Computed example of a mutant assay.
Amino acid sequence: MTTLGVIGLGRIGAFHTDTLSGLDSIDGLVVTDERPEVVAAVAAKHGATPVDSVEALLASGVDGVVVSAATPAHAELTLAAVERGLPTFCEKPIASTAAESARVAEVIARSGVPVQVGYQRRFDAAFAAAKRAVDDGSLGALHTVRSTTMDPAPPPMEYIAGSGGIFRDCAVHDFDVIRWITGQQAVEVYATGSVQGDPKFAEFGDVDTAAVVVTFESGTLGVVSAARYNAHGYDCRLEVHGFEDTVVAGWDQGVPVRNIDPANSFPEGPAHHFFMDRFTEAFRAELSAFVDVVKGDALPGCTVADAVEVAWLAEAATESLQRRVPVSIKEVRSR
């Protein structure tokens, strides 16, 4: 019998609750949010147990916790669950800054409680196959890895105002993937970007279009591109180039591009609308894997230590964008 608690029932929290309610390995759900009417609605939809506070949820006898509240609350909520000895799944990021993420990671490491961080691309079938191709050596030494994320439209400006910027709330998924795929540590980042859409991005010190070059310890280059405007659909692709071979992920029938080669009808669509339909099965696999962590049958698929490294990458990219110079990971860590 496995019962999980879900803290935070906004867009991603409600989506996770939908996913969890469909898993055979879950016997019960306990849910909470700051909005009582939302708690009541979600509980009624899924037959979950509603509670009126985080404290009540943590004391309810759950076996593990899913933290999907707003980003500023991630660290506090995750540590509260860990202090209770509860295995925890925390949506990315684990904290608002890299330095705070590192502090939280130290506390979690001392506790010995397993914590998994929500980077679902690792659980996508195509991305996982690309990782296996790298690990089995069939690509040879890697020279370039390219990762792309383009949203169909920007999130609300209220979200942008507190998100920390495009590298902390969007491109972090690309940073995690290229680290995971290469199995290497990043040493230097150069980032650039521009505002070509809503001028409010500039008011918040952000950009709506960005590109990053990441240099890894072996010399492998990671090339990341991110954009807030891609009305055709949600575009998420990966290319892994080795000396012997190349593999790609995300080039499926739903990739939102128009192939103008008259002899080729690929892709036939329909285009992926948003990340939740593109990665539905990946989210399901990710949360299923977390249930195995709760049961003690597996280790977290993405660790807090991984999330900290991603946070340093995002920090370096943000600083590089602001200063218009390459920034080393060692430099941002030393502050």
Rank of each mutant, 00 (worst) to 15 (best):
S320H: 00
D52W: 12
S101C: 07
H232T: 13
K92T: 01
F127S: 00
G197I: 06
A211I: 07
H272T: 08
P256T: 08
S21L: 03
R179V: 02
V117M: 03
V213C: 08
I160P: 00
Q322F: 10
Q196E: 14
D63N: 11
T182F: 00
N259C: 10
A282R: 09
D27C: 06
G13M: 06
A186K: 01
A102W: 12
T192R: 11
E76V: 08
A48E: 02
A40K: 13
E100T: 14
K295V: 14
F279H: 10
M150E: 12
L139T: 01
E158F: 13
T148F: 05
T192E: 12
E331I: 05
P36A: 05
E37G: 08
R122Y: 04
Q184T: 02
S320C: 01
V213A: 13
E268W: 15
S265A: 14
A226M: 11
A69T: 02
A210H: 01
S68K: 02
L57G: 05
M157T: 10
A44Y: 09
S25D: 12
A186R: 00
D198N: 13
A43N: 02
P87D: 06
L313V: 03
S328G: 12
R333N: 07
E331N: 03
V291D: 00
F266S: 08
L321W: 06
S68H: 06
R84Y: 03
A226L: 07
V327S: 07
H46E: 10
F204Q: 02
N259K: 08
L79N: 09
L142Q: 09
V255K: 03
G118E: 00
K295I: 14
V172F: 10
G8M: 03
V117G: 05
V107I: 13
H16S: 11
V332Y: 06
Y234L: 09
V38S: 02
S138L: 03
R103P: 01
P156V: 06
L77I: 07
A289W: 15
V255A: 10
A105N: 03
R121M: 11
A153C: 10
V213Q: 11
P267M: 12
W180S: 09
V291E: 00
P300L: 06
A48R: 01
G118F: 00
H232E: 13
D292Y: 02
V30I: 08
F243E: 14
P326K: 00
R35S: 14
R35T: 12
A210P: 02
P114L: 07
Y159D: 04
K45H: 10
V195F: 09
V62F: 02
S265T: 13
L238M: 09
V54Q: 07
E319W: 15
V224I: 08
